[in-house]
Design a protein around this nucleic acid. Structure first.
Length: 804
DNA sequence: AGCACGCCGACT
DNA sequence: GTCGGCGTGCTC
């Protein structure tokens, strides 16, 4: 008897294994690994993934598979392997590793209902609940739960009058458009034309259309052609002349976009040198990881495009990862312009349905290039010829919840599987990647020159302490103000970056120093101007803005920190004639708002673009000649060993936004710590020195890339319990790991409480611990009971990016 | 995660 | 004597 081994959609430690199910004989030839199924699991039904088909089983009382959800596997053999590997690497549940590879629309939705078993029982029911079933014989469980008659329902269920129904719903909805087509032949239509009453003009026109073109046509288009209304078509359908059919179609997120076709540009000498080994690796089906280190404006994208072209010519497919690409419509334009409809785009700005549609295009091989954010690395191609990660240093490639994977690692895994090259591109590579080139694990390819020989912009560092001493208390230094003014006069554009990370606008009393904290999380509340309220960024707790200080009743309670709104206000004060576009969460939350703002700026409808991090990436506007960084060092002081690296990357990236075309660019960096090496070296565009400097610091403090890291987080509603468990685990680790491993902690997390749960953490730095995953799994098993029952939280992040 | 089963305290 | 609390263990 054929059985299927299934991973069920129950993310818990005890169910994190395969369950065997009988395959009903009618599906014997249909079923295959990688398909989604619905299976009975205990009293309910759940979604699951078929991992293997087997002829044998050790289980005696097998249940049958209830439904097959797919006709072709949604996960290829390779992706199932990727899933297993992810499970192992990130210590996540199998089900989570599988689900993360598919668009959200394919995840099941569960519904529980109470149903009247049969009409005859309606009278037997207690009158209190029988009225529930008078009209509808089915009632959603949520309503039952809310009612106060739970016991009555229970009794009715026991007696058999009512039953519990478990439903598994696919939320994937395929968009359909309505088409009509003629049922009659051409001759019959012509005959009909004669018999129509003379006032039925629209019907006549419609029939004439079909005589000329007897194919199915979208109703919307037909109405446009005959300039009619649906009424005429409805009558024709009623008369049996036409037939309506619903045709499956794709939602097209780029429906109203036109992409100018582009052709390959001639490569510079340097670009040619760089692309040669890549092409060779493609031709020879050799897996290799290349680090393409190229200064901003050195033409990395053209190298990508031409490499992809070679891959497509070979009949293979390409995956391109870009950071959060809704932010860089310009990037999409370049790919769509070169490869047209062969490109699918997967980015966070798309709705669930749109993502599902793009995914299906990939799955059906209707496209051969996918451009997308992190999760696009799981594109279900089967003949991948190249994987490209642009802006390799971006932290958004690391997923921060389970499974905590890094897209770079997945890319390399898939690259090995497909024997194809993986390209990591960046102007500021991570130290990890750059270090690997010196060990020859990755091949280094360098682009030192900018394409049109534009010099890199000059960078001026302004010491804001001096400005303050000189009596300038505004957030604009004299120099920046003068330069902004100068650009206004010259009708050139400026970009202002407010680095807000680690710089929230908290509320403080100026008289007693009281800071308003979240009552559930030990973190200050953030002021939101639009809603006049204070919000917690961790648990969404919200209170109205305070009028007086709760401690001392003073009215001098104000928010501190600088928001983009505040900068905008001050900007309009000092430069009233300037037209400013502000880009932050508030102005870009609406769909498409981001792109519209950028378009406006590109069309020079504004002089100054003011924004947060989101404007640092990939923007390319010819008239931008000035970039101002308002506070360069705000993230330098975060409790994160990568803060210098992040600062250097950010400054280098924004500097690259100025003077990309004919006009020369200039950058002003305002800071309170001008002497810091990451600011100094970024201002000289000196990555190499930064690398050397930072590496020696990393070595001194035993940080990556010299050591691997693992972060264990322990949380519980009671402090004492957290401390107890944290200490036990830490000492267990100290006893079990090798002498070389450095185990720090346990200490309270930088945010010691979130949602009324106290948080402790323990950090492991290690070089080689082959037993680490095994050990961590043991720890999980040991505390399993307390995790599922007693509110204990344990999470492990191997190679963490956020240390809070 | 859900859900059933089962073993002890406060009620008709 | 029963209803119902939630601890324990299972789901192919």
């Amino acid at each position: 008897m054929k059985t299927a081994r299934v991973v069920v959609d129950v993310p818990a430690m005890q169910t994190d294994r395969l369950f065997d199910y009988l395959i009903p004989p009618k599906w014997n030839d249909l079923i295959a690994p990688g398909m989604r199924v619905i299976v009975p699991f205990g009293p309910r039904k759940v979604q699951g993934f078929v991992m293997e088909i087997s002829e044998t089983t050790e289980i005696e009382k097998l249940k049958e598979i209830h439904t097959i959800l797919d006709l072709t596997p949604v996960l290829t053999k390779e992706l199932l392997d990727v899933g297993n590997w992810l499970t192992e690497k990130t210590l996540s549940f199998k089900i989570s590793a599988l689900q993360v590879m598919l668009p959200a629309a394919m995840r099941a939705k569960y519904e529980k209902e109470i149903r009247l078993t049969s009409n005859e029982f309606l009278e037997k029911l207690d009158p209190v609940i029988s009225k529930w079933f008078q009209i509808n014989h089915v009632v959603p469980w949520e309503q039952v739960e809310k009612s106060n008659e739970l016991t009555l329902f229970q009794k009715a269920i026991q007696s058999g009058s009512l039953e519990v129904v478990y439903k598994v719903k696919d939320r994937a909805s395929k968009k359909t458009v309505r088409h009509v087509l003629p049922v009659l032949s051409k001759e019959e239509l012509m005959e009909l034309l004669k018999t129509l009453p003379s006032q039925a003009i629209k019907q006549k026109e419609t029939i004439e259309y079909f005589i000329k073109k007897p194919d199915s046509v979208e109703i919307k288009d037909l109405l446009n052609i005959v300039n009619g209304t649906e009424a005429s078509i409805k009558t024709l359908i009623k008369k049996g002349v036409l037939k309506q059919v619903n045709v499956e179609s794709y939602r097209d997120p780029f429906e109203h976009h036109h992409f100018e076709p582009t052709t390959p540009l001639p490569l510079t000498k340097e670009q040619t040198k760089v692309i040669t080994p890549i092409l060779q690796s493609i031709e020879e089906d050799q897996h290799e990881v290349f680090l393409l280190y190229g200064v901003t404006g050195s033409g990395k994208t053209e190298v990508y495009l031409q490499s992809i072209e070679t891959v497509l010519k070979k009949g293979q497919e390409a995956i391109v990862l870009v950071p959060e690409i809704s932010l860089t419509p310009q990037m999409v334009k370049r790919f769509k312009g070169r490869f047209g409809s062969k490109v699918a785009v997967l980015h966070s700005g798309l709705g669930t349905g749109e993502k599902y549609d793009e995914w299906r295009k990939i799955h059906r091989k209707e496209v051969s290039v996918v451009v997308g954010a992190r999760s696009a690395v799981f594109a279900p191609f089967e003949n991948v010829g190249i994987i490209i990660i642009d802006e390799e240093h971006e932290t958004s490639y690391k997923q921060e919840d389970n499974p905590r994977y890094h897209a770079r690692d997945v890319s390399i895994f898939r690259g090995q599987y497909h024997n194809c090259p993986v390209i990591l591109g960046s102007a500021t590579p991570t130290l990890e990647s750059f270090a690997r080139t010196s060990k020859d694990v990755y091949k280094l390819l360098t682009l030192r020159e900018r394409v049109n020989d534009r010099p890199l912009p000059t960078v001026e560092i302004v010491d804001m302490r001096e400005e303050l001493k000189g009596g300038n208390r505004s957030m604009f230094s004299t120099s920046l103000f003068e330069k902004l003014n100068d650009r206004l006069e010259k009708k050139e554009q400026s970009v202002l970056l407010l680095n807000r990370r680690g710089y929230s606008s908290f509320v403080m009393c100026r008289d007693c120093g009281f800071v308003m904290n979240c009552p559930h999380c030990d973190i200050s509340l953030t002021y939101h101007r639009s809603s006049q309220s204070l919000k917690c960024h961790y648990c969404a707790h919200e209170i109205p803005m305070l009028k007086t200080c709760p401690e001392c009743d003073s009215e001098h309670i104000r928010f501190f920190g600088t928001g983009t709104q505040k900068v905008e206000e001050e900007l309009t004060k000092i430069l009233p004639q300037a037209r400013v576009i502000r880009m932050d969460v508030d102005t870009t939350s609406r769909k498409g708002a981001h792109e519209r703002l950028l378009n406006d700026f590109g069309e020079r409808k504004a002089d100054i673009l003011l924004g947060t991090q989101m404007i640092a990436k990939g923007l390319d506007f010819p008239y931008v000649t000035l970039v101002g960084v308002l506070a360069a060092d705000t993230m330098l002081h975060l409790p994160d060993f990568r803060s210098s690296e992040k600062t250097f990357q950010l400054l280098t990236q924004v500097s690259g936004r100025a003077g990309r075309h004919e006009l020369l660019g200039e950058v002003v960096v305002q800071t309170y710590t001008p002497e810091h090496y990451s600011i100094q070296l970024a201002s000289h565009h000196d990555y190499d020195s930064f690398y050397q400097n930072e590496m020696s610091i990393r070595r001194q403090h035993a940080y990556p890339p010299y050591y691997f890291m693992a972060l264990l987080s322990i949380s519980h509603p009671e402090v004492l319990k957290v401390v107890e468990v944290a200490e036990k685990i830490t000492s267990h680790l100290r006893n079990s790991l090798s002498e070389q491993a450095i185990i720090l902690g346990p200490v309270a997390s930088p945010i010691p409480r979130i949602n009324n749960r106290y948080r402790y953490q323990c950090m492991i730095k290690y070089k080689q611990e082959p037993n680490l995953t095994k050990l961590l799994k043991q720890i999980l098993t040991r505390y399993q009971r307390e995790i599922s029952g007693k509110g204990l939280g344990l999470s492990f992040d191997l190679n963490p990016y956020i240390l809070m």
